[in-house]
Amino acid sequence: MNTIVCIKRVPDSATRVKVDSDRTGLDPAGVKYTLNPYDEFALEEAIRRKEAAGAGTVTVIGLGPAATSETLRSALAMGADEAVLLSCEGSHDGLPVARALAAEIAGREFDLLLFGKQAIDDDNMQVPQMVAEMLGLPCASVVVGLEISGRDAVAKREVEGGHEIVEFTLPAVVSAQKGLNEPRLPNLKGIMAAKKKPLEEKDVTLEAPSLELVELEEPPAPAAGRIVGEGAGAVPELVAALRQEAKVL
């Protein structure tokens, strides 16, 4: 089982987000970066399948600035075999990122192409399906369960109120949702081994964005709330406010 996993370096979810003075990016001061949490599920799935099969390779591909190599190293420490850095500034826009990833992947042989369901920085939730379309591959998104026998796969994908069962044949694209597995932590042996694993760097040039980032702003501070009243007598006013003022009912 040969697997490719696309992984992204993102600000940690605990990071306090501050918009920079250009109002188009984050103020980098104090931002801690990490492997996108949904990509951990994808990576864990790839490693488990390789371990279970006792054969195959796990290749991780990350597109982004030079520091992305740290994220790729941590994936090698978890158990990936080789890494590719597509070196560029990155983009908030899914389409050029998907194009660059698809171009890199097109020449490779694999059974499974795994993604996280969503990158927690741009929250785009679009790159996996875009890459699948560009490569003409079957695709299941937001997957919490995956069974493979031979070339046949059955995925469980999370939807409102339950799960959809999706059947397809390999090679295929799957995007991972929390619940697919419990990702391992890298251990010391893995970290040492990772230093000797291959990490190839390639410069890529992204196409012009399909969406121009005009501005990034912090959401308005919550307006001071108000006590509508006391007891059940306050209920009609509360409901009226929720409907007419807040427009949430």
Partner: peptide, 23 residues
């Protein structure tokens, strides 16, 4: 931006080569 829409829109965007803004 439902389970269906979030699955479908990127497929359409990928096939058309058009930009997509989600949520």
């Amino acid at each position: 931006a439902s389970a269906q829409g979030k699955d479908l829109a990127p497929r359409v965007a990928g096939r058309l080569g058009s930009g997509l803004a989600t949520e």
